[in-house]
């Protein structure tokens, strides 16, 4: 059927889609893997991101208004505690609030940054083409192109895009970096002005620095040559980042080991196919088919062991 054909081959006409290698990544595909079993939720990655990428600290009031600027946020999920079935115990349970506070109830943490989707929903809706896919698989955000329509923010299923509601570098209004503190700004990263969207860039300034060196020496970037700021700050080593097309890279090995395929939306963890070794790798909201580049390794709970 011809319409079925069109729909089946629709991916061929999307620039960003990696099916079948028809749109290669020129030797690079930057990807990330985050091991939730190791992550302690310490927020060091988030702080490192603030320091590296000139993020504005907006303060409590603006944060509560949803004007936060953290490119990497840690989402906290309390573990479910089984409620008692006995109604008498249930009233006592709700009255005491037992199992709802930290020492009694475990939590797990989900660091969420831009997932750099291969078929990114934000890219297709930008009216001016300020966000698009680079050849090495990064979802780019060009600040001076952006007109601030915020359509990408609406269309992002992960809600990882942040809008500059104020001119945070202006000393008259929002003095985020008062006089001595402006020395901490990273010169390799633009200080964004009012009215533009911003998001995680996989620390593109570090990537470009090593890619230039590699290009001069006529090779590809080697494994371990570049780290993102969050990866560098993670003392547990939960975050691994690298070129997925490099067979030596840790992140590529993890993706293969976990059976996570960037071009599929159902992974072997859910399908239970092949060998029966338990798999932990998954990507967030895969059923929406944005084909994200960040893989999470789920936490192994004591109850399941």
């Amino acid at each position: 059927m011809s319409i079925a054909n069109l729909l089946q081959n629709w991916s061929r006409y999307r620039d960003t889609h990696p099916y079948g290698g028809a749109k290669p990544h020129m030797g690079y595909k930057w990807a990330m893997a985050i091991d939730m079993d190791i992550c302690t939720g310490c927020n060091a990655c988030s702080v490192a991101c603030y320091a590296e990428n000139n993020l504005a600290v907006v303060g409590k009031e603006k944060f509560l208004n949803g004007k936060s600027m953290h490119w990497l946020r840690i989402e906290r999920y309390w573990h479910d505690t089984p409620e008692p079935t006995d109604p008498l115990q249930l009233t006592a349970y709700t009255a005491s609030g037992a199992g709802k506070h930290f020492p009694d109830q475990g939590a797990h943490f989900l660091p969420i940054m831009c997932q750099h989707c291969e078929a990114a929903p934000c890219e297709t809706v930008c009216p001016v083409g300020a966000t698009n896919h680079t050849q090495d698989g990064i979802n780019s955000q060009i600040y001076n192109r952006c007109v601030g329509s915020r359509y990408c923010l609406v269309n992002c299923p992960y809600k990882v895009r942040y809008f500059n509601w104020y001119n945070y570098q202006d000393p008259a209004t929002e003095n985020v970096w008062p006089e001595p503190l402006n020395q901490q700004l990273n010169p390799d990263v633009t200080v964004r002005s009012k009215g533009v969207m911003e998001k995680c860039t996989f620390c593109v300034q570090r990537l470009r620095a090593v890619m230039v060196d590699a290009r001069t020496e006529e090779r590809l970037v080697r494994e371990g040559e570049v780290q993102t700021a969050c990866q560098q700050a993670c003392m547990a080593g939960a975050i691994s980042f690298g070129n997925m097309l490099n067979p030596d890279s840790r992140v590529g090995k993890q993706w293969i080991e976990q059976g996570v395929n960037i071009a599929l939306d159902v992974q072997s963890k859910n399908e239970h196919v092949g060998d029966n070794t338990p798999k932990r790798g998954y990507r967030i909201l895969e059923n929406l088919r944005p084909y994200p580049s960040v893989m999470y390794l789920e936490q192994v709970r004591e109850s399941s062991v």
């Binding site: 680079t134 050849q135 780019s140 060009i142 600040y143 001076n144 192109r145 593109v204 300034q205 470009r208």
Partner: peptide, 8 residues
């Protein structure tokens, strides 16, 4: 010819 090669 990539935006992100020159823009930061």
């Amino acid at each position: 010819n990539d935006c992100f090669m020159c823009h930061k």
